[in-house]
Each structure stands twice: as C-alpha cells, then as structure tokens.
C-alpha cells in the first residue's frame, strides 16, 4: 500500500514539476495525427476487426434500443456519467495546473450529486458552471510534454496511444475515486458491478449518440480503420490542446500546397 502511495506521489510530483515542460506549439506538433506512428498496424487492424465484431453482436444492438428511450432518460444517464467523470477530471485539472477549472468542476460535482440527484440533472449549468471538458491522465502527460508514442487499438476499449494506455493505469492505482469506492475498497455502499456497469453504459451511450455517424462513416469509407484512426487522433489532439478553435486543428500549409 505504501509503495502504491509513493508511486502515485512520485508520478504526481513528476507531472506537476513538468507541467510547463511543453509549449502549446510543441504539444501540438507532438500530437499531430499525421506524425503518430502506427507501429503494429497488422495487430491493430486485427484488434479493430475483433472490436467491429463485438460492436455488431453487442454494442450496436444495445445502442439501437437505448437510442429510442425517451430523451429525458438518455439525458439523465448521460449527465450521471459526466458527473462521475469529474472524479478523474478534477485531479487532472490540478495536475495540469488549472486550479480555476478544478474548483469549478468540484462545484459542479457537489451541486449535481446533491441537488441534481446523483448527477441525473445538470443543475450546475443553470448556475453558470456550464463549460465542462473531460480531462484524463493521458491528457495530463501530454500537457507535461510526453509524446503519444505509437497508435494502439485495444480490445473492447478501442483506439488509444501508448502514452494514453500507460496513463490510464493511474485510474487503477488510486487516481479514480469512483474505482476506489466500488472495486478497490469494500465500502459496503457500492459493488464492483457499479463500476463496470457505469463503464459499459458509457460505451453504449457513446455508441448511441454517434449511431448514424458511425454507420455512415463505415458505409462510405474506403478504409474504415484509417478513418477511425484519423478521427480519434484529431479528437485527441483537440482535447489535449483544450482548443475549440478550428485553426488549431488545421494546418493551412496543407491547403497552400495545392495552390502551387
């Protein structure tokens, strides 16, 4: 136990001390989707095919039922999942040195868990706390200047990078309070099932929200694997930069090239 605490402390300190190690330009360059190598493409494509199979027999049918549920039910589920994700977002706000957001998200979590009935209703947005962006340990490592490494497709979990896969282990080493109170510690209030069912529900919720887009993309792609990889890495770059500005995800020189 002491060893684990020390490990977390060292990781936290290392991240905090390096919080400003990478400038925005450097981070953008490192996380440029075109620069991220697909070191084990054969293996990744095989895993991708496995995940597609799982999607067809499991996630897609469940999502197709889920998406026809009444809107208030889906919104409530989505709000609850977002509320739970604060438990990973808040420590990462702190690791990234963004104390204002950490405070706002703590406020969001307390208000929505209590007044918002376990997060079902997003009361905080009516109190001016409307901007919520998820953060994770992979994003914190990226902000600290750690490069993404190779692109990886994980069984069931889907696209990731070496850095993000490594960073996600922090969730199981005490970095996710929801995991701690459900799986790791016997609190008598929660069970392992609560944690795993929340993760499966998050997967179904994501699949249902993007149901048509995914179907459309698959039907109209020449190489579905490459399309998913590109979209995932673009999304990841945007999340790391915390930028909604289009020009941040676009390289105009690419467009300039065709002028010549």
């Amino acid at each position: 136990m002491l060893k684990k605490i020390l490990l977390i402390l060292i990781t936290t300190l290392a991240l905090t001390l390096n919080a400003n190690a990478g400038s925005d330009g450097e981070i953008k360059l490192k996380n440029n989707p075109a620069e991220i190598k697909d070191c084990s493409e054969g293996f990744n494509r095989a895993t991708f095919a496995l995940n597609q199979g799982l999607d067809k027999i499991l996630f897609k049918p469940v999502a197709s039922v889920y998406r026809v549920l009444p809107s208030p039910v889906k919104t409530g589920v989505s709000n609850s999942l977002d509320n739970l994700s604060n438990l990973v977002t808040i420590p990462n706000n702190v690791l990234q040195g963004d104390f204002a957001k950490a405070g706002a998200n703590t406020g969001r979590f307390i208000i929505n868990t209590t007044v918002g009935i376990l997060g079902l209703i997003d009361v905080a947005q009516y109190l001016g706390l409307s901007e919520y962006e998820k953060e994770d340990y992979g994003q914190s490592l990226a902000k600290a200047g750690v490069g993404p490494g190779c692109y990886i497709v994980l069984p069931v979990l889907g696209p990731s990078t070496a850095r993000d896969t490594f960073a996600s282990t922090a969730n199981f080493l005490g970095g996710d309070a929801w995991y701690n109170v459900t799986v790791k510690n016997n609190t008598h209030y929660f069970r392992d099932f609560d944690y795993y069912s929340s993760k499966v529900t998050a997967g179904v919720d994501f699949r249902a929200k993007n149901y048509d887009s995914i179907e459309n993309l698959e039907e109209n792609s020449l190489d579905f694997y490459a399309s998913v990889k590109s979209l995932y890495l673009q999304d990841r770059q945007q999340r790391i930069l915390n930028s909604k500005k289009i020009i941040a995800t676009q390289d105009d020189s690419d467009w300039e090239e065709i002028e010549n």
């Binding site: 989707p33 075109a34 792609s221 020449l222 190489d223 694997y225 490459a226 399309s227 990889k229 590109s230 979209l231 673009q234 999304d235 945007q238 909604k244 289009i246 995800t249 676009q250 690419d254």
Partner: peptide
C-alpha cells in the same frame, strides 16, 4: 472539430 478533408487525406494515405 474533426476535419472531413483531413480524415479523407489520411484514409487515402493509408491506402
């Protein structure tokens, strides 16, 4: 935030 042209470009590049 996800560019369709860029996705298309990376798809062609992969092929």
């Amino acid at each position: 935030g996800l560019s369709l042209a860029r996705t298309q470009k990376e798809e062609f590049s992969s092929i």
